[in-house]
């Protein structure tokens, strides 16, 4: 188990280093960062000054390590547009996005796992068809379109739910559904496929031959095994959802990282964008690592060799 965890941890660290390199190189994406900062009317002297002040004149490897050291201490740079520390803004916005992400994932899992199980228990029946239809629609419908339909229906026509903002939990209902619905099909189909396979396995027959109650056979013996691959998938999907939150937060005007990312792109606020990418990536890496650990916990074949 320890070896497994260490292996996963080193993979996570490797990914983190790669991500940090990519993120770091973002400042050079738009050419000379000093020139970009200085603006169009700057003289050559201004540009040189900026280059020296910001350290852009140093060898790139030194710049990277300076940047990394600062980032590790929570200093993610300075937003020239907002005239404030990037980290302040990010950590103010992070909880909103995390709440949205967690609610969306919760919604997705609560919908897709029971549906997948039901569909697997009665393959090719009405419930299975219903689940499949839902999955197909979910995969075909862009989440922004789905969000707009919901806004129109529940926000404008029925006036049940607030359309914008993140003031109360009511504000999170529609965005969570819009964001979570996007990952439902994949999770549902994997649950269904996994359950169908597990239900026809020999150990389920053994469980029934022991006279165990149907619910024990279904949940203790079948779902426990079918859920293992779903954990990894859910982690990956959560990553997609963080990306999707850019669209959803913008549509619902939720003050989260996603909206911040969108605004920063519009303002060409590079340090901010850089920090957002870094934070979201790190979050994703941590999540994947936790999913690996959870997998090991669920699957003794990983845990004990």
């Amino acid at each position: 188990m320890l070896i497994y965890a260490l292996k996963r941890l080193s993979i996570a660290l490797l990914v983190a280093v790669t991500v940090s390199l990519l993120t770091f190189s973002m400042i050079y994406l738009s050419g000379d960062p000093a020139m970009a900062l200085a603006g169009e009317s700057a003289t050559q002297q201004d540009i040189e000054n900026i280059r020296r002040v910001y350290g852009y004149d140093q060898p790139i490897i030194v710049q990277y390590f300076n940047w990394l050291a600062n980032a590790l201490q929570g200093d993610l740079g300075h937003s020239h547009y907002l005239k404030t520390e990037v980290s302040n803004v990010i950590f103010a916005r992070l909880p909103v996005t995390m709440t949205l992400g967690a609610c969306a994932l919760g919604f997705a899992l609560c919908l897709s796992i029971p549906l997948g199980v039901l569909a697997a228990m009665r393959p090719n029946t009405l419930i299975d068809r219903f689940a499949l239809t839902l999955a197909v629609i979910g995969q075909a419908l862009p989440s922004f379109w789905f969000a707009l339909i919901m806004i129109f229906l529940f926000g404008v026509s029925l006036r049940w739910l607030p359309i914008t903002g993140s003031a109360s939990w009511m504000n999170f209902i529609m965005p969570s559904i819009a964001l979570g619905y996007y990952v439902t099909p994949a999770v549902m189909r994997l649950t269904r496929a996994g359950m169908i396979e597990v239900l026809s396995s020999d150990y389920i027959r053994t469980a029934r031959a022991k006279g165990l109650r149907p619910s024990v056979v279904l949940f203790k013996h079948a779902l426990r095994n079918a859920i293992i691959p779903v954990v990894s998938l859910a982690a990956v999907q959560f990553g997609f959802m963080l990306g999707g939150s850019i669209v959803i937060e913008t549509i619902f005007a939720i003050n989260g990282l996603g909206q911040l990312a969108w605004e920063s792109i519009l303002r060409a606020d590079l340090p901010m964008m850089q920090a957002i990418v870094l934070v979201l990536s790190c979050f994703y890496i941590v999540l994947t690592f936790l999913a690996d650990l959870l997998n090991a916990f669920l699957d003794p074949r990983i845990r004990v060799s």
């Binding site: 396995s201 053994t206 469980a207 031959a209 022991k210 006279g211 095994n225």
Partner: peptide, 26 residues
């Protein structure tokens, strides 16, 4: 009634020992 009987008064041993036990439990 059958589930009360199975594993109780009547038990069965299957052909595939490699897959007949649940891998997730001791």
């Amino acid at each position: 009634r059958m589930s009360d009987i199975r594993g109780n008064t009547m038990g069965m041993i299957f052909q595939e020992p490699m897959t007949s036990l649940n891998p997730a439990y001791t």
